[in-house]
Computed example of a mutant assay.
Amino acid sequence: MSERLLEIDDLSKRYGTTIALQNLTFDVRAGELFGFVGSNGAGKTTAMRIVLGVLAADGGTVRWAGKPVTLDTRRLIGYMPEERGLYPRMKVGEQLTYLARLHGMSIPAARRSVDEWTERLGVASRRDDEVQKLSLGNQQRVQLAAALVHDPQILVLDEPFSGLDPVAVDVMSDVLREKAAAGVPVVFSSHQLDLVERLCDRVGIIRNGRMVACGTGDELRAGGAVRVVVEAPQAPAGWADALPGVKVLARRGARTELELGDGADDQKVLTTALATGPVHEFARRRPSLTELFRNVVTQEVAR
Rank of each mutant, 00 (worst) to 15 (best):
T25P: 03
D151Y: 12
I154E: 00
R75Q: 15
A56E: 04
S2A: 07
L199M: 08
A145Y: 05
S106R: 15
Q139G: 02
T18H: 11
V142S: 08
G35A: 05
G137P: 04
R75D: 06
E3S: 15
G35Q: 02
S135I: 06
V69M: 14
M80E: 10
G224L: 05
R210G: 03
E291D: 07
A124D: 09
L274P: 00
R294Y: 07
T46S: 15
R49I: 14
D58Y: 06
L157W: 15
R286D: 04
C200E: 04
E257G: 05
A180N: 03
Q22E: 12
M105I: 15
R120A: 04
E83P: 03
Q267R: 11
E159M: 12
Q143E: 12
G215Q: 09
G60N: 00
D9Q: 12
V149E: 12
V156N: 05
V187E: 02
P160F: 07
L55C: 10
Y79K: 09
R177S: 03
I205G: 05
R221Y: 03
K44W: 12
L121N: 11
A240G: 06
P278K: 12
V226T: 12
G204C: 12
D170E: 13
E178Y: 08
V51T: 02
G215W: 05
G35T: 01
V62D: 09
L157F: 14
I50P: 03
R294Q: 14
Y79V: 08
E291S: 12
T272R: 14
V248Y: 10
L96A: 13
V51A: 07
P287A: 07
V248S: 05
G137S: 00
K13C: 01
G261R: 01
I154V: 15
G59F: 06
A240S: 15
G41D: 01
Q267M: 13
A124P: 00
Y79S: 09
A235H: 08
S12Y: 11
G245P: 00
N40V: 11
N295Q: 14
I50Y: 05
E197I: 07
V279K: 03
M105V: 08
V296S: 01
G183E: 01
D165Q: 02
G209K: 09
H150F: 09
E231A: 13
D27W: 13
A124V: 10
H150T: 13
F293Q: 13
D241E: 13
K44Q: 03
E116T: 15
V171K: 07
P166R: 04
E116A: 11
D58W: 10
R294L: 14
V169T: 01
V142G: 00
D158C: 06
N295P: 02
A273I: 00
T216A: 02
L96M: 11
T271E: 09
R294W: 01
V228A: 01
A181D: 10
C200L: 03
